[in-house]
């Protein structure tokens, strides 16, 4: 469907970027207007974290949708991935600012003692080389290894989900919904790999 659109591609790119910026714009607006309540840090942590997770699901959804005929979507996967990394990085920055107070010792302690922090941090670590190698030049110079490297999104997804699951205290409903979506997206890839061995 998208391939049949007659609008110039840059228009669609602008639209995608605008959509990606919407959650951030909304959160910033709420922050500025005091809508986030007495503990805005917590709400921002949640907001950026959830959009990171949703971003992962959206990026992982591109390939299955492309297979069903929406091939034009591949064009926007890089932008989507970079924005997902932006949300995840903001999430981490907020953690450093509000929870750890930029104390290295405290960060080490958090990583050592709280598995959900370690797991979340690892997910960010796994995603950062993908963001760094997202340029055309990096892609060309890495060649075959670029594809291999970018498979890091799969462990990052599992780690990010584990991060969410570990944070659930008394109601695991939300974690289960995200888990179902991620499981479906990862299983689709597993099946594809089995049916189309390269």
């Amino acid at each position: 469907m998208l391939t049949r659109l007659t609008v110039p591609p840059w228009c669609a790119t602008v639209a995608v970027i605008t959509l990606c910026l919407l959650p951030l714009a909304l959160l910033s607006f709420q922050l500025a207007s005091g809508d986030l309540g007495p503990d805005p840090a917590k709400r921002l942590m949640q907001g950026t974290g959830y959009w990171g997770l949703r971003g992962l699901a959206i990026v992982l959804l591109v390939a299955p949708l492309a297979q069903r005929g929406w091939r034009g979507l591949f064009r926007y996967r890089r932008v989507l991935g970079l924005f997902l990394f932006l949300y995840v990085s903001l999430h981490l920055l907020l953690f450093a600012q509000v929870y750890v107070g930029w104390s290295g010792a405290l960060l080490v302690e958090e990583l050592k003692e709280r598995p959900y922090v370690l797991v979340g941090f690892s997910a960010w670590l796994a995603l950062s080389p993908l963001a760094l190698t997202s340029t055309d030049r990096a892609r060309r110079s890495l060649g075959r290894r670029w594809r291999q490297l970018h498979r890091l999104i799969y462990p990052a997804t599992v780690l990010a989900w584990l991060h969410l699951f570990w944070l659930a205290r008394s109601d695991v409903g939300e974690a289960l919904v995200y888990g179902g979506v991620f499981a479906a997206l990862l299983l689709w890839r597993l099946r594809r790999a089995q049916t189309r061995p390269r």
């Binding site: 922050l31 007495p38 503990d39 805005p40 840090a41 921002l44 600012q97 509000v98």
Partner: peptide, 11 residues
């Protein structure tokens, strides 16, 4: 502890 109300730049 974050003594509420807290903010981003003054937690």
């Amino acid at each position: 502890e974050r003594k509420l109300p807290s903010s981003i730049f003054k937690p």
